[in-house]
Write a protein that binds this DNA or RNA. Sequence first.
DNA 1: AAACAATATTTGTATATACAAATGTATGAT
DNA 2: ATCATACATTTGTATATACAAATATTGTTT
Lengths: 148, 148
Amino acid sequence: MNVEEIIKTSKQIPLEPRTLIHLQLVHNKVNEAMNGALKPFEVSLQQFNVLRILRGQQGKPANLSTLNERMVTKMSNTTRLVDKLLAKGFVNRTVCPSNRRKVEIVITDSGLKVLGQMDESLEEAHQVIFQNFKKQDLEQLNKLLDKF
Amino acid sequence: MNVEEIIKTSKQIPLEPRTLIHLQLVHNKVNEAMNGALKPFEVSLQQFNVLRILRGQQGKPANLSTLNERMVTKMSNTTRLVDKLLAKGFVNRTVCPSNRRKVEIVITDSGLKVLGQMDESLEEAHQVIFQNFKKQDLEQLNKLLDKF
DNA sequence: AAACAATATTTGTATATACAAATGTATGAT
DNA sequence: ATCATACATTTGTATATACAAATATTGTTT
């Protein structure tokens, strides 16, 4: 990836803004690849993320605030995101009996099955995304990202 | 930045998906900082980006397709983005006399002045964003990001 | 020149996301 | 028990973004 070439500029950019532009470009590219991998399943990255969290609960229900807390990208409207998953039959939602303000969300068998297929599709995307990375590069990158 | 802590998971995540989550978290954080820096001026990052491109033109007008080509994040609706800048008086838009399909967009004096203030505000944001980075770290990070 | 295709932008519409106010429920103080 | 407050979610609404179709202009072919 060549920053200057992509944004079609000839003049050199100072290191700090260049890094921010670079991050944005990588983000765009990665997102495109991941959304592409999820496209056949008609779910957004956010929805996929929620399904993964629910699987991680191992049968234990999660409520909306828990989901929101664990999401990679926090969003203001988890209700409507779960609505979509519900409409696809990937989750069940019930009011929490011990505290009726809360809701209990669990992933369905169908949700689990499709999530497995999404994993496979994303695995393929990883191979493309990370084709130029050695294990050591990834470790180094993670270390640098920690500085943010 | 501790990935596992932020998304509140105890189990360790494989290196590749962890990198993608990491990138997303960094992206969120950087975006928040930059949007915060631009908030007093009521412009989005995309709008700021377009203003910078126009300044880079040094008086020479740019048309919509040129802007779109040079934007960090390409978007499907540059017309309405420019509408907003126009409404704020930061740009002028005229039909190109030699080819009336095209439009010519230039940054106004007012736009240039405010853009200068935005630069200062972003400079401060940089200091926060990059506080843990040495010059060498940034160079290394840019090199690794090139692998995408 | 008329017809057709190509180009540049605009508009319509659907979907996504953000933010604030509203709703329903539970908890604690008086 | 009543009231005020806090909590969890939902709803309304505004704004942002995405995609496709529509419009206007130019270039090309016959």
